[in-house]
Design a protein around this nucleic acid. Structure first.
Lengths: 247, 247
DNA sequence: CTAAAACAGGTTGTCTGACAACCTGTTTTC
DNA sequence: GAAAACAGGTTGTCAGACAACCTGTTTTAG
């Protein structure tokens, strides 16, 4: 049974109070009701207003502090920091609510992945190239079996292929940020990707798009790697966006 | 008094227990003592082992959950997630400890910024271009006054200039991730940047590097914008790395 | 004998109250 | 007039309790 992952996983996560308080305060900050430098209401005050215990408020504020949205000082209070203190980049599920946002996320992904390929073209090692080639063959084999028999394997292998390419950039930070974005897009859009893959991402023409990326990596051609990767992901995004049932 | 920011700011932040517990558990996860799927010790157990109250442990775990490192279920326990669940990209101060790490961060910054310029070259509006030009003039004016009189202003204006360019990509996600990285690099390396700017980032030759970026944006030349930006930041990073007193 | 229901123990989520550490402005003291 | 003591408020930590929930076991009903 190739359940692998993500299929039938828990969907109805029980709400957690601190999270809700956190998004509520975050909204107040990003909405402008709380400007940088402003002091938040005291924890006791917030607890009373939200109707929760202070421990809940504390956990919420601790999350905001973690991302650098607020800074709290014992004996004084918690203050909204200015935007130059943000210490995390995160993609919330809310980013997938509007179609325009999704398109922008896909664009971000496309460009970062293109940059990763370009970097990899100049920094890849031989053994990394061997692994990449092996993944490509595995993908081609799954592709040949067609969308009915090898849908999931085809999509997963492609994912793995580009993850390996990204890691061949040999820059752990670049790899980490790309992987994080990629992962979040997958987790939120996987069903859309699967449907789309079944409909339009199989076949020799598509494989040719991937082939071009590999060729560029083989040749250590930075610009070709960028262009090929960018083209490949842009087209895939276009084909996805063209689907009527998307988002 | 142009204290502006960051000068003489609080350095000796009082340690917070939950943060320390969080890094301790994180280390256990990233170090491999706790593998994906493993269950963490119970909160009570952790509290006893760390010698702190359960509220402290709870806050720590809530941070890890926020980043997608663990997933906790009421009545069952907290489990280490696999790497495909990470939901945040963050740059910790630890990233600035080793010289190699810093170089890789600067490279990441360079490439992302180059991508942002390239994007901006095709998406910028006229009014954005006007603003960018104005910032460039302001920077040129500060540059002319030299490192003795206008050091901070010169550096800050340059920062602002490239932030505006990034925002001209008109992709909020791209802008956000670049701004976050840029901000963290600045916060941790500002003194190094200042010293370096005073020594080697002033003068017509340097301004010409920036000019090339602006020209490409004017011409809406995507490739030229990328190349010019990349060249500019790579050279700056090289000049910085060449300094003996760096890191 | 089997399947459903009740039970027991353990774990996370939330609440409450308390006190320590700390900050700020005021008052008192020298 | 300056330093010291004081008072009130706020965050950080601790302790204990109970609710909500999960899992495996035992009991019960058929």
């Amino acid at each position: 049974m190739p359940d692998s992952q993500g299929l039938f996983d828990r969907i109805d996560r029980p709400r957690r109070l601190p999270d809700e308080v956190a998004v509520s305060i975050t909204a107040a900050i990003e909405g402008g009701q709380l400007a940088p430098g402003d002091r938040l209401p005291t924890e006791a005050e917030l607890a009373k207003r939200f109707g929760v215990a202070r421990t809940v408020v504390r956990e919420a504020i601790s999350l905001l502090r973690y991302d650098g949205l607020v800074d709290s000082r014992r004996g004084v209070g918690a203050f909204v920091t200015d935007a130059s203190q943000r210490s995390a980049f995160r993609i919330s599920p809310a980013c997938f609510e509007k179609r325009k946002q999704i398109v922008q996320l896909l664009k971000l992904r496309t460009w970062l992945q293109a940059g990763a390929s370009a970097l990899a073209a100049s920094t890849r090692t031989e053994s990394q190239m061997v692994q990449i080639d092996a993944l490509y063959r595995q993908m081609a084999e799954a592709d040949a079996r067609g969308p009915v028999d090898a849908l999931e394997e085809r999509v997963d292998t492609e994912l793995l292929l580009y993850r390996h390419i990204t890691e061949a950039s040999n820059n752990p930070y670049y790899a980490e940020v790309v992987a994080m974005i990629e992962t979040n897009i997958q987790n939120n859009l996987r069903s859309a990707f699967l449907k789309n893959a079944a409909a339009s991402e199989f076949g020799p023409a598509i494989m040719e798009e991937h082939r071009a990326v590999l060729d560029a990596l083989h040749a250590k051609d930075v610009e070709a790697a960028r262009t090929a990767t960018r083209t490949r992901f842009e087209r895939a995004a276009d084909r996805l966006a063209a689907r009527a049932d998307f988002a």
